[in-house]
């Protein structure tokens, strides 16, 4: 009995000492610990991602020959259509190059594209954040935009050695400027994620929509990046306006919800557009300077 009591007392004392030490240690040590934990966790995240890829691979491999033939036929048709599109785009590219040569206009490359597989979604915020299998070793820097094709997925918020965390468009930490399809005057509007309840549907909001803006008839209006903020390249699709716009009581402007252009739940692969030159905001996001 006494031995049990002594054991319990020792546990409490050890816990108290640990808590006291944790409070007293310098923040750099705590940050190191956090980073070390993330790095410790990274192989597991890689393993999870790769297992999922493997499962998908075997699931596809188990399809019947008829299914594969049909899929191959569909793919051939899509390929044929894309071939035509590629030719058309090539013509446009050549014309573009010709015009640039005439005007002696040199456009420097501004972004380096890094393709990354999605490792996992952050369980604490299911819809809002994903972890990708590329990190500092691959040249990724915080603040870089994350896209899939020409659609915006989110933004890198934290970079570790081999993994990075990405705030999705629906994350409350995501904010960018946008243009609306059908707005001839190109007013800038604000897109930001909305904090949602656990298990609630993740949302983003489009605000500061001019009151005289009306959506194009017959189709949901697309929301594009402006390229003015120095982070996102211009004309990437962020999403679509959700059905309609509604006026806020203070007047003058309207708001709407945003439907992300990609199914964020099923993302498998994304591209990180790493700016070739550091922008001021990126410098602020470096923890040691910003805090």
């Amino acid at each position: 009995m006494d031995q049990n009591r002594q054991g319990a007392r020792a546990s409490y004392i050890a816990l108290s000492i640990f808590v006291a030490l944790w409070i007293l240690v310098p923040s750099a040590v705590r940050r190191f610990n956090r980073e070390a934990f993330v790095e410790f966790q990274a192989p597991a995240l890689h393993l999870v991602g790769k297992s999922r890829d493997m499962a998908t691979f075997w699931e596809k491999k188990s399809r019947s020959v008829e299914e594969m033939t049909a899929a191959g036929r569909d793919l051939a048709r899509i390929n044929a259509a894309l071939e035509i599109k590629i030719n058309a785009l090539e013509d446009i590219r050549r014309e573009n190059v010709r015009l640039r040569e005439i005007t002696r206009y040199n456009v420097p490359a501004e972004y380096m594209s890094v393709v990354a597989r999605v490792a996992t979604r952050d369980s604490s915020s299911w819809w809002q954040r994903i972890v990708i299998r590329k990190g500092r070793n691959d040249g990724i820097r915080p603040g870089a935009p994350v896209v899939f094709g020409n659609t915006v997925v989110g933004r890198v918020t934290a970079v570790h050695l081999t993994t990075s965390e990405v705030d999705l468009v629906t994350s409350p930490g995501f904010r960018c400027t946008a243009y609306l399809e059908g707005d001839d005057q190109n007013h800038i509007v604000l897109v930001n994620g909305v904090a949602s309840n656990s298990l609630g549907t993740a949302k983003a909001r489009v605000s500061v929509i001019p009151r005289d803006y009306s959506m194009p008839a017959g189709q949901p209006a697309r929301v594009f990046t402006t390229g003015m903020g120095g982070v996102f390249p211009s004309r990437l699709v962020i999403g679509y306006l959700d059905g309609g716009t509604y006026a806020t009581q203070v007047g003058s402007f309207k708001e709407s919800l945003l439907i992300p252009s990609r199914d964020l739940y099923n993302l498998q692969e994304v591209s990180v557009l790493v700016p070739l030159h550091q922008n001021p905001g990126e410098a602020l996001m470096q923890g040691d300077q910003f805090q």
């Binding site: 603040g143 995501f174 605000s207 903020g229 982070v231 905001g281």
Partner: peptide
């Protein structure tokens, strides 16, 4: 002016003591 607003919106950290407020 629009560029200034856009740069702040996209580059300045969302969380923290500095807020972007919009009025009329």
């Amino acid at each position: 002016g629009t560029k200034s607003v856009a740069r702040f919106i996209e580059q300045f950290p969302v969380e923290g003591p500095i807020r972007l407020e919009q009025d009329i």
